[in-house]
């Protein structure tokens, strides 16, 4: 990294890479998430995306978004839209979300925050 121009180039490259996929699936992988069981979940997602050839979907680990009480959290982010926040996830629920939401485009509302006291 020699100068700001180099930094800018990396920034743009990174942003383009993020946009390269129409959908990002973020899995909370801080201690709170992992303790609640996020590891099998991220593995299930990666497996599911591969098996179903969902080239447009990128599965990514992220830090703690602060809603530790409801971990494991999975957020599905589409460009330009509010992320859909799935709470209290487990592998079975994740598989359902892969089927219905990632493949079929239909949000599984009962798994989202709308099914909780937060809303």
């Amino acid at each position: 990294m020699k100068n700001l121009a180099d930094l800018q180039a990396i920034k743009e490259k990174s942003q383009n890479e993020m946009k390269a996929h129409s959908t990002r699936v973020l899995v909370g992988m801080a201690t709170c998430g992992i303790a609640a069981g996020a590891k099998p979940i991220i593995e299930a997602l990666e497996e599911g995306v591969k098996m179903n050839n969902l080239a447009d979907v990128e599965v990514s680990r992220v830090g703690c978004i602060g809603l530790c009480q409801y971990e494991p959290l999975v957020e599905v982010v589409k460009e330009g839209e509010d992320p859909v926040t799935y709470v209290n996830m487990d592998v079975d629920k994740v598989n359902k979300v892969i089927e219905k939401h990632l493949k079929g485009g239909e949000i599984v509302e009962e798994y989202t925050v709308s099914g909780t006291a937060l809303t």
């Binding site: 990396i10 973020l26 801080a30 680990r61 992220v62 830090g63 703690c64 959290l73």
Partner: peptide
């Protein structure tokens, strides 16, 4: 936090 992958410096730069 909760937005970028902490193990990818490129995302932080992004």
């Amino acid at each position: 936090c909760g937005y970028i992958d902490p193990e990818k410096i490129e995302q932080y730069i992004g």
